[in-house]
């Protein structure tokens, strides 16, 4: 049974794991291919990563092959929408901290974070974010003297 919306999926775990690992090996290996390999007494920048990629590829393959003989199991994942909120939350801080300033950036980060939690009233979410923002500003900007402005350029005319 595969139902992505509810976050349930049935797979052969090790096959996926092996392919996933091998994909990284191919990615790193393909890039390292362009770096000079050098020779053993003067290793080039490509030597070590290429060897590692080859080893990683073999390991990934071994995991995948062993996985073929296992039975598929049902797995539960975090709901995709919640995952998005969690990943977007820190990004929002990075994007907003310069133009909007620290206070607003933290509010936005915390608010988007709370969206990942089910069953909270919108007012509760706002209060949690506001309190966190004031606390964080007090600790980091006024307390520890982090060189960031509490209010960004949106607030200066």
């Amino acid at each position: 049974m595969t139902d992505l919306a509810s976050g349930t999926i049935t797979i052969k775990k090790d096959v996926v794991a092996g392919v996933f690992i091998a994909a990284f090996a191919i990615g790193f290996g393909a890039i390292a291919w362009n770096y000079s390999f050098g020779n053993v007494s003067q290793m080039g920048p490509g030597f070590f990563p290429l060897i590692l990629s080859a080893v990683l590829g073999c390991l990934g393959l071994a995991v995948a092959v062993r996985g073929i003989f296992s039975s598929a199991e049902q797995m539960t994942f975090v709901a995709p929408i919640r995952l998005l909120f969690v990943l977007a939350s820190p990004l929002l801080f990075g994007v907003l901290v310069r133009p909007a300033g620290f206070l607003l950036a933290v509010t936005a980060t915390a608010f988007v974070g709370t969206l990942a939690a089910p069953g909270m009233r919108i007012l509760t979410r706002l209060i949690v974010s506001g309190v966190l923002a004031v606390l964080a500003t007090a600790v980091f900007i006024w307390g520890l003297g982090l060189p960031l402005a509490a209010f960004g350029r949106w607030f200066t005319l």
Binding site: F93, V97, T109, G113, V128, A136
Partner: peptide, 18 residues
């Protein structure tokens, strides 16, 4: 936990960015 993890997110973002 609903109160805790937004705080962890905020801390992570500030820490990494700083």
């Amino acid at each position: 936990y609903n109160m805790m993890f937004p705080a962890i997110l905020v801390f992570s973002a500030i820490g990494v960015y700083s």
